[in-house]
């Protein structure tokens, strides 16, 4: 039996469930669209497609997330072969991590993560 069946089935069911839930109201719920309802629930000036740009902090977080995510992944790999690699592995990964920590320190120093 193909080992992938459960994943596909659950994925399918999950997505189906989501769709059902999100589409449910469309069929069941009453529909009396009024301009008030159409509006966005918001006070102040309607800023539909406001051109105001978000601060770049989010972007920096995302970038650092990627780069440290890769670090996590490689550490997972190392965890897998930890015992058989013994000291050699440790030294190797230590170097890897230290270099990334250097990057991390740089980030701290430049204040990229200070949230205004």
């Amino acid at each position: 039996m193909n080992p992938y069946l459960p994943i596909i089935i659950i994925l399918g069911l999950g997505v189906a469930l989501g769709l059902i839930l999100s589409g449910f109201a469309h069929f069941l719920g009453p529909r009396h669209p009024t301009p008030a309802k159409e509006e966005i629930f918001e006070c102040g000036v309607p800023t539909v497609a406001s051109r105001e740009r978000m601060s770049v902090k989010f972007y920096l977080t995302a970038i650092l997330f990627i780069l440290f995510d890769i670090e996590t992944v490689f550490l997972f790999l190392w965890a897998k072969a930890f015992r058989s690699l013994a000291w050699f592995g440790i030294v190797e990964v230590a170097v890897f991590v230290l270099i990334l920590v250097a990057g991390y320190l740089y980030v701290l120093k430049t204040g990229a993560l200070e949230w205004d």
Binding site: Y59, I63, I66, L67, I70, V73, F74, L77
Partner: peptide, 16 residues
Amino acid sequence: FFVITVAACEAAVGLA
């Protein structure tokens, strides 16, 4: 793995 890493770095710098 290495390709993915490079892609990640490239995307990061590119988007910057």
